[in-house]
Each structure stands twice: as C-alpha cells, then as structure tokens.
Design a protein around this nucleic acid. Structure first.
Lengths: 238, 238
DNA sequence: TCAAAAGTGTTGCGTTTACACCCATGT
DNA sequence: ACATGGGTGTAAACGCAACACTTTTGA
C-alpha cells in the first residue's frame, strides 16, 4: 500500500461486476433472486455489493466477468452478456470505470452449490441471496445497476428464449411459464403460452413426465442448436 | 513520453470512440455515411479509424464521448448512446479498453459544418466521410465495431423513432421514409408508413409544405415531449 | 392534360387474446 | 367422484401488408 496506492489518485482503474439472476421458490410462488457480497473494506465497508473485481492486464472483459463470478459463486452461468459500462466520476472515491455484465444461473446449479458448501462446511459468510425486487441499500451505484439489469432481462425475455437459462435441463411448460411470470410480473394464459413455446422451435419434448401432483406434465428440453448465450458484437465464443 | 510511456506496458488505459451516422444524398438515393479520422501515429498510422480519444481522469464516459466528438467534428450529435465496451487483450499493442458510443447527426448540421469549414478554409485534412456499408480496412477492430453499430441502429429503428435524429427540424414523410429505407435496406409502402408514423404520436404536422416537385408535401416536426436521446440506465441527462 | 408524388380507403392474412372445453391423475 | 392442473379447440380482436384509388401540383 505504498506507491501503487498513492498512484490510484491519478489513474483510472477498470473493474468488472456481474448481476447474477436466478429463480427461487418461496412458498407457492417463485421469485427472481441474486447473490450479493458483503464488502470487507472501504469504501462502503459492511454494505452489500455486486460480485466483481479488478480487470487483469492480460484477460479480456468476458474472461474477467467469468473469473470473478467463479471466485464468488463457484459456478458457470448459463448465460452471460455485457450490460453497460458505468463511469461517472463520483461513483467511487477513486476513479473507477466498471464494466458490468449480467448473467443467468440454472436453478439446479444453485442447489448443487448450496449443498456442496453445506457438506464442506465452508458456506461463505460474505455471500447472501436477495430478492431482486426487494434489495437493501447497496454500495456504490449498484441499486441503479440492478434496476437496469432487471429492465434488460424483462426486455430480452420478450423477444428471445433466454428464460430457459434459469431452469434445469428438463422442465415442464408450467415451470417455464412461472419463470416468465416472475420476470414479467404478470400472469400468462397457460394455453397460449404453451402454443407459443411449442411453436418457437426451441423446445424438444421428451418422453419423461413430471409426476407428483395431478395429471403428469411432459418434460421438455432446450434445443441447444439455437444459441442461448450472447456472443457479443464480435461473435466470439468466450 | 518518458515515464508515462514506459508505464503503458503494465497499465490498462480507457479510451472512448464514437460511431457517428448521418445520411447523405448521392444522386436520387440516400445512404448512411460516417466520418473517420486518419491516424497520424502508430499503431496503424495512415489507416482510417473512428474518432475518439483517451478518457480524462475527471470526466464521465458520456462527457468524454461528447468532447472527442466535438474535437473532431465540431458538432453536437442529436442522439448519443453507449454501444459496447471492447476489451480484447490483443486489440491494440498496449492494453486498451474502449468504451464505444454511437451517435446520430442531423443532415442540416452536417451541411452547416461543411460550409463553415469551407468558408474558414480550415477543412480538416484528416477527416473524411465514408459510406457506412462500403468501408475500407480500418485500424484496430473498428470494422467490427461499425458493423455492430449498424446492427444496433437497424434494430433500434424497428422499435423506436430515433430516425428523426438524422433529419432537419422539419421534414416530409417521404424524407423520413427514405431514411428508414436507407437504414433498413428495403422499400417501405408509403401509405402504410404514413399511417404508422402519424399514429406513433411523435410527429407534429405543421402548416408548411415542401414545394418544388409535384404535389406539395406537408412538413412535420418531431415532438420533443417524447424523449429522443437515451439517457442511459441511470436516467441522467448529460 | 399528363406524369408523378401526396394522401385515403379497403381487404385479406397471420398473430395474439380470451375463454370454453376435454383429459388424466392423486387423494 | 372430484378437484386440479395438463392439454386442445375456437372465435373475436388486432396489427400489418398489399394494393386500388383519389387529390394536387409542376411541366
């Protein structure tokens, strides 16, 4: 903390953060939730913030997003896309330009991670999951960033099929519909939703069924021939 | 160029560039064109590149885009929106993260600038206008960036009314339609275009008419109550 | 008066929306 | 048997594309 810390006063540093969405069952409804990390140093020590970190000199922006994501959650997102570059002068005491990504996490992956942590007894103290629409006051401008990410998610769900990225490999149409309803915050007609989903060409029906309640529901699988991830303007696969 | 130049080997610098679109009449058709600057130093000396520059320590990203735009073209764009942050490790010899914006310029503003430069005799040698769909090989990854900006423009034109940003204050529906046709690269039905434009609520008919050829066409004005510029995720007015 | 662009009317088609209805299963 | 969600059918409403048609000017 001698020379390099002093130098932070007159250089612009580049950080990468990610808004990671997943779905969570709370009672009979499902809701969007996201993981936050508690800051352990100034500025904003003790407040919740988006997971992220500094960009390394020899890694691309995409790679930095994946790396910081893995370091905090230990998981690969099913979808990752650049959101926006935030660079207001006063958003941090030192000058920081944040390249923010947003990501989707599969429900089963989240479960697997939680179970693994519980078994290993290393449940991270500084990570917690929050309801995306009911957040506390976050560090920096992160509340605005989450709001913008939510807006992008709601928009994108309207003209693409990314919502699959929040579910396990196999899912019923009702489960998929509930995800859409949680994101769009309105009820969808099951009959019409079914026709639209089946007609999109992105769903492959299986011969397996989800049983347990009333009439068994057919399980579907996402057609991976159709691209899920956004490979960015350069079409590069990270 | 002593110590700071040496230091560029191990720091990441932030640059800002802008893809600036305008429309140009070539014969009886109109086409999208954009200004490029010839590089006067390595890397890529002599090649054409997007206007831009380094981010100052005490200016926001938006301000840097506006400033570098003014320094090269001397104009205020009618629309300015962040496009994407490019950060591949090998896109430049030293490590550079470029925050790229895209912008629209009014046709009459371009004319005014050209006339002013001609009168003052200071027509910039290093700036030239190119057809957006027929560019030479540009410096860095700027060809990819322009392609992406074109894609965004075409997309955005489909669900918003930003095309006005390319025309003068008053315009006929035929002129507006020609702009759409140039961007979307297909003919539009004049009758249906008229209904859609009038029904959008963003056009104010005037009592003035464009005369000269056949039946005079009513001039319209853009309704500035409807926001043209994208104020970004934070809703901030630059 | 004629060509050509401005502007209006009408029709057909495909998509979405609303909702009635049947099917299959656990309790 | 019956309640409940799974799944199908159908008709009205809406938006959009195609195109015939009228209007108004300059030449």
């Amino acid at each position: 903390m001698t020379r390099s810390a002093d130098r932070n006063h007159d250089i612009t540093r580049v950080a990468v953060s990610t808004v990671i969405f997943t779905v969570r069952r709370t009672g009979d409804a499902i809701s969007l939730s996201l993981p936050l990390v508690r800051r352990t140093r100034d500025p904003h020590e003790g407040q919740w913030a988006l997971p992220g970190g500094w960009l390394d000199i020899s890694e691309s922006l995409d790679a930095a997003a994946s790396r910081t994501l893995a370091e905090t959650t230990g998981l690969q997102p099913s979808y990752l896309e650049q959101l926006y570059a935030f660079g207001a002068v006063d958003r941090s005491p030192s000058r920081v330009v944040s390249i923010v990504y947003w990501a989707l996490l599969r429900q089963d992956d989240v479960d697997a991670q939680v179970a693994a942590h519980a078994a290993a007894g290393d449940a991270p103290e500084n990570v917690a999951w929050f309801d995306a629409t009911d957040l506390p006051g976050l560090a920096f401008d992160h509340n605005d960033i989450v709001d913008y990410a939510l807006w992008r998610l709601r928009n994108k769900v309207g003209y693409s099929r990314i919502a699959h990225g929040l579910l396990a490999d196999e899912f019923t149409l009702a489960e998929l519909r509930e995800v859409y309803e949680a994101i769009l915050r309105r009820r969808l007609d099951p009959a019409n939703f079914r026709r639209q989903a089946e007609g999109s060409g992105t769903l492959i029906p299986t011969e397996r069924f989800r049983t347990g309640s009333h009439r068994p529901a057919r399980l579907y699988r996402y057609n991976r021939d159709v691209e899920l991830a956004d490979h960015g303007p350069l079409g590069v696969r990270a």
